[in-house]
């Protein structure tokens, strides 16, 4: 019963909150990841290695940030997706 009500409330989350729960945590984590990553790696050198010498540092930071954001959002979206309640198992032995 309690499982039912939990599924119910999760389904009833306002759309705003559902969108936020994907985009917002990933944004926060992306900001942190961008700082930590680029303290160690210089985007210009990475651009050189990747064969994209025309990418400036500011451009590198921006691409990095949005890459981390996208990846984080993907993770959050999958979490949300797998949290959805599954259809109950059909028990053939009991049905007979």
């Amino acid at each position: 019963m309690s499982n039912d009500t939990q599924a119910q409330t999760e389904h009833n989350l306002p759309v705003v909150q559902r969108i936020i729960s994907v985009l917002w945590p990933s944004f926060l984590v992306a900001s942190l990841a961008t700082v930590l990553f680029f303290v160690v790696f210089d985007p210009q050198e990475l651009g050189m290695l990747a064969g994209l010498p025309e990418v400036t540092r500011t451009g590198g930071y921006t691409i990095g940030f949005f890459f981390f954001w996208f990846m984080g959002a993907l993770g959050c979206a999958l979490t949300c997706y797998f949290r959805k309640p599954c259809p109950p198992r059909i028990r053939t032995d009991q049905a007979d």
Partner: peptide, 24 residues
Amino acid sequence: MSTDKQPASANEAPVEQELYKKRQ
């Protein structure tokens, strides 16, 4: 499958309404 979906989509309408109420 279809029987499972039924209650969910029936729930949809009041949920959306609640959304508008909540965003006063």
